[in-house]
């Protein structure tokens, strides 16, 4: 049983799948990174992905163009971000509560909207056609390399974009004036506002960018991964992304590695549930990413705690006599 298991794991197509599964989580994790850098906890990512996935697909269907679909999803993501911002920064709703509200819109609101726009209930299976799905590309030269080519070539354009965005986001945060301002606002809003940086504006920008990235993740889900929109499609990826952000220490590259870890866990689930003797563990395997997240958070919290230990209360047994 386990021999077979390991054989399956160490195959090129398995690594290919990991990358494919990681991409939407990565988009959402980057969305979490950018908003968290500005000090905004975006718990609404799950709902944002649901809604943008729906609108991305609808825009693509209406125009029969996947490009318009992706851009539309980003636009809707931005609007959702701005809406959360309006309620939280302007009307002072707790940001966590505005996030929960967006998630509510994501679960039921999407079904309502789908019906309102198309008359369909539950999913868009009837509307799918190949030209509105995000195309895959073969990378010249790399696709000729054995094994590596199989792993790296032939992904959807958005998959590559997700990984490229890791570095774009890094450069944005650390090398541009806007990134500098966003980090300053997240770390010390008073300092930022004392030099005339508008804290609220930076937060709006960050959460709008967060929405745009979530939009890319949503579009990836409905226009590539699931080939159409359905209700249970996002399945907690928005929440996992929050954990990936936290585990990745809030940095783009760190978030990428923790997203890959979640990708691995989910890929294992799909692989393993096909194996004889392992099939009846499919739910438990599906659980792994969430358990890994909790464990990851625990380790992260412990490392922070250890760093801070010297200056906090020491355990009584260390007490000096």
């Amino acid at each position: 049983m386990f021999g077979q298991f390991f054989q399956t794991i160490f195959q090129a197509d398995f690594l290919f799948i990991i990358i494919r599964i990681t991409a939407p989580i990565l988009f959402a994790a980057l969305a979490a990174v950018i908003s968290e850098k500005a000090g905004v906890a975006n718990i609404g990512l799950e709902g944002m992905m649901m809604i943008t996935a729906l609108f991305g697909f609808l825009f693509a269907y209406w125009t029969q163009s996947w490009v318009v679909g992706v851009l539309g999803a980003m636009l809707v993501g931005i609007l959702l971000g701005l809406m959360m911002g309006f309620f939280s920064f302007k009307l002072k709703t707790d940001i966590i509560l505005s996030g929960i509200a967006v998630n509510m819109l994501g679960t039921g609101g999407t079904i309502f909207l789908l019906y309102m726009f198309t008359g369909l209930r539950g999913n868009t299976g009837a509307l799918v056609s190949p030209n509105i799905l995000i195309p895959t590309i073969d990378i010249p030269l790399i696709n000729k390399i054995p094994v590596l080519g199989e792993i790296l070539s032939g992904h959807a354009i958005l998959t590559y974009l997700a990984f490229i965005f890791v570095f774009i986001l890094r450069i944005f945060l650390y090398r541009t004036p806007l990134g500098l301002k966003i980090r300053a606002v997240g770390e010390n809003p008073n300092a930022a506002s004392s030099v005339g940086v508008s804290v609220t504006r930076m937060k709006y920008i960050a959460i709008a960018m967060s929405g745009a990235l979530a939009g890319l993740g949503g579009a990836f889900m409905s226009m590539y991964y699931s080939q159409g929109w359905n209700q249970g499609m996002v399945a907690g990826r928005g929440f996992i992304a929050l954990a990936a952000q936290a585990m990745g220490r809030g940095e783009p590259v760190g978030a990428m590695f923790s997203s890959l870890l979640f990708g691995l866990a989910q890929a294992m689930k799909t692989k393993v549930s096909g194996l004889r003797g392992m099939a009846s563990y499919n739910y438990l395997i599906e659980m792994i990413p969430y358990v890994v997240t909790i464990i990851g958070l625990v380790f992260y919290a412990m490392s922070i705690k250890r760093k801070a230990r010297r200056h906090q209360l020491k355990p009584i047994k260390e007490k000096l006599s």
Partner: peptide
């Protein structure tokens, strides 16, 4: 110039 410095420590 504020009493509590308005500086971002990591920068």
């Amino acid at each position: 110039v504020h009493q509590h410095f308005m500086l971002v420590s990591s920068l």
